[in-house]
Design a protein around this nucleic acid. Structure first.
Length: 401
RNA sequence: GUCCGGAUAGUGUAGUGGCCUAGCAUGGAGCCCUGUCGAGGCUCCGCCCCGGGUUCGAAUCCCGGUCCGGGCGCCA
């Protein structure tokens, strides 16, 4: 246990009646009823009520408690008292109470849930926003989701890697990169582990994954896009896109199932009812999806990507998680493997939630010659890809991710 | 980038030309109150984004700017 406390809020039970404990946390609220004074102390695990009856409390302690400022950091040493009228069946009767850090007042936003704050206000005062229970819940859920993914991938024989984040060249077209100064040279923040995880395939690592930060300098302005995000990438050798889809759908299923169990209190607090998607996910080819979009009145030419509205129409028609497969080769990245017998289509997929895209993948081209041609066909300069193309010269297995 | 919409106490909002010396909630200061758990009651404190313009008169209408939200686009 920490040196300044003996218990967290979540450790204390009514059965500990009579025990002396030292707790620490932030002052969440106080309620002054005159003859009795309640102080609600918050730590990561929850809340605890500190109760002081005026007649039974040292006057100096009682007065100092009444002068406290919300969100100050406090340690309290006191006696646990079983009390049916108290929130969790117990309260703490303090002997000593010391302020470790006094808060300013007033607070930049309400954190008790009485008054909402706009997202902008919340981010401007993120240090306070992070104290809100619901914000913590999001972090807890995120943590459990990541843990479930790592467990799953580990069991599937994947090893976790971290690829370079400071890179030499703007390797591709498409998304813009953030330029930075690398000593006296220009460098960029990496937008994807793609090229590096493929190089790991040439090295025989067989199955790798990375969960890490990516940076994209797009001036897009939607709720679904961030300039700094966390990406989850896998790459595996001797596999095609169908194998990857199999792994991915089980991964997604597993994460939902684990989070539903591990984060039941957080989900309830946030009012989220999580439904675990059923396996296997539907496979819908690009051509079939195009037909759905057209029948819903959207105008899209074969070979075009679906817009937001069309994507949503398709999602509504299907109603659950699905794979959008066999995309036209020309709208997929240069490393996407075409079908040998029908090269205008590619061995590719997007994983879709009815309302948005979750992931995309494909079998990769593993022939250096074809890859070189495809880079040129996409209007890119192969010279910039030298470090990448070399990995395809000395034994690159078929792979997908 | 573009099209809509918006900006009022610390926070969230009401107010569409004079009734605004700007209402409410939350908050802060203080007082009352012995079982609160969004405690309650009373008193007080605190706000019209910036710059121009129209008008006898602007929080309100017009123009420009800045910032924010939503839709679309952009997005290996």
């Amino acid at each position: 246990m920490d040196i300044m406390r003996t218990h967290y809020a979540s450790d204390i039970t009514p059965e500990m009646d009579g025990d002396t404990v030292t707790v620490a946390g932030w002052i969440h609220e106080m309620r002054d009823l005159g003859g009795i004074y309640f102080l609600v102390l918050r730590d990561r695990g929850g809340f605890m009520q500190i109760t002081m009856v005026k007649k039974k409390t040292d006057p100096e302690l009682f007065d100092s408690a009444r002068r406290l400022i919300r969100e100050s950091v406090l340690t309290v040493t006191g006696t646990v008292k079983r009390e049916d009228k108290a929130p969790r069946g117990y309260e703490i009767i303090p002997q000593t109470l010391s302020v470790l850090s006094e808060s300013d007042s007033p607070l930049p936003m309400d954190i008790t849930g009485k008054v909402d704050a706009d997202i902008d206000t919340r981010l401007d005062s993120r240090f306070i926003d992070l104290r809100r229970r619901k914000t913590l819940d999001v972090f807890v859920i995120r943590h459990h989701a990541l843990k479930a993914m790592r467990n799953f991938l580990e069991n599937e024989g994947f090893i976790e890697i971290h690829t370079p984040k400071v890179v030499a060249a703007a390797t591709e077209g498409g998304t813009a990169l953030f330029p930075i100064t690398y000593f006296n040279r220009e460098a960029f923040l990496n937008q994807s582990p793609q090229l590096y995880k493929q190089i790991m395939m040439s090295a025989g690592f067989n199955r790798v994954y990375e969960i890490g930060a990516i940076f994209r300098a797009e001036e897009h302005d939607t709720l679904r896009h961030l300039n700094e995000a966390t990406s989850i990438d896998i790459e595996a050798s001797f596999m095609d896109h169908l194998d990857v889809m199999g792994i991915l759908e089980r991964l997604v299923h597993e994460v939902y199932a684990q989070v539903a169990v591990d984060c039941a209190p957080q989900l309830e607090e946030l009012g989220i009812e999580l439904s675990v998607p059923k396996l296997p996910f539907k496979r819908v080819s690009y051509d079939d999806a195009l037909e759905i979009a057209l029948s819903e009145g959207h105008t899209i030419e074969w070979g075009e990507d679906f817009g937001t509205a069309a994507e949503r129409a398709i999602g509504n028609a299907i109603g659950e998680h699905y794979f959008l497969t066999d995309w036209p080769t020309e709208i997929k990245p240069y490393y996407t493997h075409p079908y040998d017998d029908k090269p205008v289509y590619s061995k590719s997929f997007d994983l879709m939630h009815p309302r948005m895209e979750l992931a995309s993948g494909s079998q990769r081209i593993h022939s250096r010659k074809i890859l070189h041609e495809m880079i040129e066909a996409h209007g890119l300069n192969p010279d910039g890809f030298d470090f990448y193309l070399k990995a395809f010269q000395y034994g690159m297995p078929p792979h997908a991710g």
